[in-house]
């Protein structure tokens, strides 16, 4: 366990730019821009005073937006992480150093995969939570500018923040697990083709879909199982937008309702198949790495 922790820490140190520094800069920039905008500009938003939304509901919707945005950042950052990390040691000429350590290639690559599904999501979850706090601070200015919106009390804010944090955690975890085969796909390509993995991750499935469509030209009921599979895998379909808005604007919002919605909508068998695919990719990549030492 100590070794895994160290290897995961190594990943953090190597990729702190994407998962630590960039989010800090992004968050600071957004916060400053928002504050500046609210202080120096009159908000060009006309919300009727009888819109029917209290500050608490608005805060919950804002929090949901925050988690959705950080989740999108996480998935994009993880895509680039897996497109790089499985071949990073070869590319930066440190492969032989790591191979001089008494750790197997399987353990090293497993630690890279584990970093992608543990420490990095945890960091971005923390950023999402911090953003939630900043949104609350910003809400003071918003209320000052738009007095028809009621201020969220600290107890309500804390309750919403914690509830959304729990729901956000589950959302992050389920998202990553659902998209694990796609991340595994680009990681496997990275092992073989290094940075070409990024275009190839799109070009190869794109070519297959194209061939599938060409073979279906003129067909009355064209069958395109591969295209359907890709479309299905790219859509986690965990949350219905209308249901979420309804839950967030209700008085009795709880994380458990949202979690039940997410877990109920997921196809767990397909998720398990995807995880098995990703695990096989990690194993095969480790066997490849065991045999290749050239850059």
């Amino acid at each position: 366990m100590k070794t895994y922790q160290a290897l995961i820490k190594r990943e953090l140190l190597e990729h702190r730019g994407a998962f630590l520094y960039a989010p800090v800069i992004l968050l600071a920039a957004l916060f400053l821009l928002t504050i500046t905008g609210l202080v120096f500009e009159d908000p060009d938003i006309s919300i009727s005073s009888n819109v029917g939304l209290a500050g608490k509901q608005l805060y919950q919707i804002a929090l949901a937006g925050v988690f959705a945005l950080w989740s999108a950042y996480l998935l994009i950052a993880l895509f680039f992480y897996f497109a790089d990390s499985f071949s990073a040691d070869r590319r930066n000429n440190s492969l032989l150093f790591w191979k001089s350590m008494p750790q197997s290639d399987l353990k090293v690559l497993t630690s890279k995969a584990l970093a992608g599904i543990t420490i990095f999501p945890a960091l971005l979850l923390a950023f999402a939570m911090i953003t939630g706090l900043l949104v609350y601070l910003v809400s003071f200015l918003v209320v000052a500018k738009m007095p028809y919106i009621s201020m969220v009390g600290p107890i309500d804010m804390l309750s919403s923040w914690i509830q959304m944090g729990v729901a956000g955690l589950v959302f992050f975890v389920l998202n990553i697990l659902w998209y694990a085969p796609l991340l595994g796909w680009v990681a496997g390509l990275s092992t073989l083709f290094q940075r070409w993995s990024i275009p190839l991750a799109f070009l190869i499935p794109g070519a297959v879909v194209l061939v599938e469509r060409l073979t279906n030209l003129g067909a009355v009921n064209p069958s395109q199982p591969f295209a359907d599979l890709i479309a299905y895998r790219l859509d986690s379909s965990m949350l219905d937008e209308n249901v979420v808005v309804k839950m967030l604007t209700s008085d009795g919002f709880s994380a458990f309702g949202l979690i039940a919605e997410m877990t109920g909508a997921l196809n767990w068998f397909d998720m398990a198949v995807g995880l098995a695919f990703a695990s096989v990719v990690v194993f095969l990549a480790s066997e490849y790495r065991r045999r290749r030492i050239d850059a």
């Binding site: 190594r10 140190l13 930066n92 440190s94 150093f97 790591w98 001089s100 197997s104 065991r290």
Partner: peptide, 21 residues
């Protein structure tokens, strides 16, 4: 290899230390 490396060390290239650390 992994077990063996407990008692074996090697330097195969002076530039192989991880540069980001």
């Amino acid at each position: 290899r992994a077990m063996m490396m407990n008692d074996v060390a090697f330097i195969s290239d002076v530039a192989s230390l991880p540069r980001f650390l």
